[in-house]
Computed example of a mutant assay.
Amino acid sequence: MSFLWAIIAGLIIGLLAKLVVPGRNPIPLWATILVGIVGGLVGNLLASAFGVADTNGVDWVRHILQIGVAAVLVAFVTPLWSRRRA
């Protein structure tokens, strides 16, 4: 069941990251999900390292870190994908 939640969270984080990155991001949905999953995992690690992983209420800093890492990955993957498709 946690695998399913990772896919759902990866989809949401990946789509939010694509919204943050300016310009057209023609990467496929499966790549968006993978970028979101990796962004979520790395964002959680960074939040734990900074001591903000578990707070009272909504963990806004953790979520911002997750989306930020995923946005960097989207910005990195998009030119690679565009070059591959050309």
Rank of each mutant, 00 (worst) to 15 (best):
P28M: 03
A70T: 08
P79Q: 05
V77T: 09
L41W: 10
A53I: 08
L65V: 02
A6E: 11
A71C: 09
T78K: 02
G57E: 12
P26G: 14
Q66L: 05
V52D: 01
G39S: 00
I64L: 12
N44M: 12
A71S: 15
L16A: 13
L41A: 02
V21E: 12
T55M: 13
A75E: 08
A75V: 04
L15H: 06
P79T: 08
I12S: 12
A86G: 13
L15K: 06
T32F: 01
P28T: 07
L19M: 13
R85W: 05
V74A: 05
I8F: 11
A53F: 13
L65A: 02
G10C: 12
N56D: 15
L41Q: 02
W5G: 08
Q66F: 07
I12F: 11
S82F: 01
P22I: 14
A17Y: 07
R84L: 11
A71E: 03
A53H: 10
R84T: 02
V61E: 04
I13W: 04
V77C: 09
A49R: 08
R62K: 11
G14N: 06
F76G: 11
V52F: 00
A86R: 13
L45K: 10
I13V: 14
T32C: 10
R83A: 10
A75N: 09
A53G: 09
F76S: 07
T55Y: 00
A47T: 01
N56S: 11
Q66S: 12
L73M: 08
N44D: 10
A71L: 00
A47N: 04
I64Q: 06
L11S: 11
L19Q: 12
G43K: 01
W81D: 07
I37K: 04
V42C: 05
R85M: 10
G68R: 02
